[in-house]
Design a binder for these strands. Structure first.
Lengths: 169, 169
DNA sequence: ATTTCTCAGGACAATTTGTATAGTGATCTA
DNA sequence: TAGATCACTATACAAATTGTCCTGAGAAAT
């Protein structure tokens, strides 16, 4: 018996069942397909199909291992706004990408041109990393903020919960 | 035959084999323990033990599903520097955490007090989210930068590769 | 020298996966 | 309105994986 079909197929990229599945996997990522189906109260094939479809749509991109950089010795996170020479973004990004401690780079509107997240082992290590960044050709100016704490760690949960809570449309 | 024991036990949180294992899992997260052992050329028990230990040490915190927010309809990422009233960080963070589109909050040194990553469905949606943030009590000032592109997506790989490349100590 | 670790290698039952199948009700299309 | 499609349940079976336990061998620490 089909319990609740949703009317729109390709409209909503993530429907309620998808959201519940993703939330389940968010909380306990190592669950197998079978276990998921049990917890969600649906057939195994359904879970399998949902996961396949989410993957096809590009919503679910994988299950990468989550590493705690702090536990790996990189206890320090900092954010840097980098101002660069006009039209040199590609080169600069390449230079930044070559620095292992550079964990993320975004090109942004506003005062800075690039927004960079870096990690380091200590304050002096951060100094070293920052020096590296400044040494990248075409980097004009750099202002760094150290992350003192992370009141809200990276999360997607609330977004999923909203889908789950409300009817698809 | 134990091929290569490392000399330090609790010193290096991640040794070469750990790094290779984590890299492998980074590239193909859904691999099972058995498959990992095959690829790394070690016994299954070893892989199992390594994963357990990494988890115990807190280095490996899990395998959360990676979701592409863009594919979920949240195509816009922005960063906000939030200035807040002295001594109100806890309240403000609580208020921010209540907004689903707020995906990450850090307390930082420097000009802004809080650094916030938000997502939105569109420019006008972003407007709405920003308004929400400004409405959080004790938020004084807010400057937003929209992410135009992400030349270096979040990554840990280079850090692991460094461990892998060089001998533990 | 002895103890303690880590790892290779192997074995076992229980579970899970991959892959099909058929049937049912609902939506979509012509 | 009569198919055609689609999503889901339910079930089946072989192959693979997991959880767990064991042994013995080197290496390092006491």
């Amino acid at each position: 018996m089909a319990l609740d079909q949703q009317s729109e197929h390709s409209d909503q990229p993530v429907d309620e069942l998808d959201a519940r599945l993703l939330l389940l996997l968010t909380d306990e990522p190592r669950l197998g397909v079978l276990e998921c189906s049990r917890r969600l109260g649906v057939a195994r094939g359904t879970v399998q199909a949902r996961l396949d479809r989410l993957t096809d749509r590009g919503v679910l991109t994988g299950f990468p291992p989550a590493l705690d950089l702090g536990a790996m010795g990189y206890g320090l996170t900092a954010f840097a706004m980098v101002e660069i020479a006009q039209g040199r973004r590609a080169e600069v990004c390449e230079g930044l990408a070559a620095i292992p401690e550079v964990c993320e780079v975004h090109a942004t509107t506003g005062q800075g041109d690039l927004f960079v997240r870096v990690v380091a082992r200590s304050n002096s290590d951060l100094q070293r990393v920052v020096d590296h960044i400044v040494d990248v050709p075409h980097v004009r100016r750099l202002s760094t903020s150290i992350a003192l704490s992370t009141p809200v760690p990276p999360r997607v949960r609330p977004l999923l919960e909203r889908v789950k809570g409300r009817p698809p449309k």
